[in-house]
Structures are given as C-alpha cells and as structure tokens.
Design a protein around this nucleic acid. Sequence first.
DNA 1: GTCTATAATTGGATAGAC
DNA 2: GTCTATCCAATTATAGAC
Lengths: 185, 185
Amino acid sequence: MDTRDQLIDSARELLWERGYVGTSPKAIQQRAGAGQGSMYHHFSGKRELALAAVRRSADELLTAADSQLRGPGTAVERITAYLRREREVLRGCPVGRLTQDPEIVADPELRAPVDATLTRLRARLAEVLGEGQAAGELPAGLDPAALAATVVAVLQGGYVLARAANSPVPFDQAVSGVLALLTVH
Amino acid sequence: MDTRDQLIDSARELLWERGYVGTSPKAIQQRAGAGQGSMYHHFSGKRELALAAVRRSADELLTAADSQLRGPGTAVERITAYLRREREVLRGCPVGRLTQDPEIVADPELRAPVDATLTRLRARLAEVLGEGQAAGELPAGLDPAALAATVVAVLQGGYVLARAANSPVPFDQAVSGVLALLTVH
DNA sequence: GTCTATAATTGGATAGAC
DNA sequence: GTCTATCCAATTATAGAC
C-alpha cells in the first residue's frame, strides 16, 4: 500500500474512533508513518483527506451490506443474516458515527457520502422487506420504507446503547427485539 | 440564574452540539458570559464542569421520558406518546450523543450517568411493554427487555438517520415502522 | 468571586531544502 | 515525494491582582 493509501486508512480509523473534530493531521501522519510534507503533498489539508476517507468508508459499508442482503435465502433469512453478522459493536458504525460531528454535518460535501450510504442502505432493505411481504413471510400492509428505516435505526441506535453500557448486550437485545417483531406474525 | 448554573447550562448546550472533544473551556465561558477566573473558581477544569453538565442532562432526559411513560392511558398510548412527542430531531439526543465521544466513554465517571440514564429508560419502557402484554394490547411471548432496547435504539438511530439526511423524515419513518410492528398484532 | 496576564502544548498549515 | 523548520492561533490551564 502506498503512502497516500496509508494516509487514507489512518484517517478512516481515527475518524471512526475520534470523529473529525477529535482527529488532528499530526495524529493521522503518525499512524500512517508519514511526515507533514507527505500528507500535504497528497492532500490540500485535513478536510480533503477526510473527504477521501469518508468516501471510502461509505463505499465499504454498502458493499458489506450488499453481501448479506443480495445473498441467497429468503427475505427473512437475508435480513437476519445482515442484522446478526459479526460486528465490532463497541466500536460503533464508522459511517453513522460521523453524523455526530458538527463539522461533518455542516459541510455538504462531507455529509453527502454519509447521507447517500444510509439512504441506499434503507432502499436495499426496503426492497428485501417488500420481497418478504410479497412472499407472505412478512405482514403485508406495512410500509417497506418505514420498516427499512426502523431496521437501520435499530442498528445505529444499538451501537449507541452498547457504547453507553460498554457492553454489546443491549445491541443484541435491540436486534433480537426487532427480529421478533418482524417474524412473530 | 447564578454564574455557576450559567456555566453548566452553556456546557450542556456545547456538549450537545459539539461533544466533549469539540468543546473548549473558552467557548463555554463566552457562551456563559463568564471569564476564565470565574470558571476555574467554580470548577477544577473542563472535565469537572462537563461532569456536572452531563449529570444534569441525564437527569432531565429521564424526567421528560417519565412524564409520558408514567402518564395516563394504555400502554400503547403511552409508548406512542413518548415516541411521537415533539423533538428537535436534527439536534439529536443530548445524552446519546455523548456515546460517540472517545473521552466520555473512556472515562468511567463521565460515562456512568449516560449509561444509567439509558439503562433506566429501557427499564421503564420494559415495564410499560410488560403491562401492554398483560393487558393483551401487545403480543405475549416476546421479551419486554429486548423490545425496550429496540424502542430506545429506534429513537437513537432515528436521530442518526435524520442528521445524515439533514431531514427529520427518516426519524419519523423509523418511529412509524416500530409502532406499526408493535400494534399490528 | 471575578479579572487580566502569562505559559506550555497542540492544531493546522506553509516554505523551502533535498 | 518526503523531510525539517517555521508560523500563528487555539487549547487548557496557572498566578496573582482586585
């Protein structure tokens, strides 16, 4: 991996752990093993590097979600696989985390990939949920878009509860709860 | 309101907007209309002031939730009232927001009020959900603790989706989705 | 209790040598 | 492309006068 990629990867990790305001160019350089000059050669500054990092994290999230949601199995099986897949729960979501950063949400270009990713994720889930309704696995008459928002919110909120408790237990409870509601019908 | 309270209130606002790492003592002082000396007279430093601010916000959240959850009405009515109450969705949750701050979750004393508040909120909701099951309003056989985690996660995650989209719409969708799942039975 | 002065450290970047 | 030197503002305090 070249220096430019190392910088992007280090920025991704630090944005995940500490957010945009909590991450300094110096910290990124040190983690990447690069000097000042190197970073400012490849990027105009902190913001442009963060932009590259956010875009890459956003792409990876959607790709990972697709591998469960577009995989084999019934709608309920795919949604269950997505919700139950192994996650580093206490680290939170590398994309959702960015919504808590004032400088990210205030900057249209930095917010755009976050918005696009979560919006597309909901759209993918709504498709699968719609398929489940058509197949009679899920109750008809409920808005797939609303249910998709609920499912994604359970994940994002589950991370919040887990980090507050310093334990993955409430995350797992929240996932179990929504799966039970979806499948009890 | 005296200077000490002004400082706590200003700290609460800034912690809500910018988090712990994004908030400087100077910014708190300026918002409070107080000088350096004043702040360091009342508090030993940023951390102690933040501790007072976090505790106050945590207390207020639980009090506000109780006013809906312990109010009149059936279990479903109270949960609906709680989920549908007016919120400044794009500002996010003043308590849940803190879980994204590395310095908050790494500090047991700062994390404690956040943890206690979200844990108690889930316990209150589990009680109400249990009452709803006993009254036949909600499907029996589902774990009230899991459902409570789901409901709180939908709120916390709804804020994430809304801030990403810069719109309250996905928050409202997520709430509608979980209410539909709870009441369709 | 509040004010102003001072200070060590970090943040975010520029300049120029190699 | 990468390095070191330099720069100015902000951060997080402490000291002492009033």
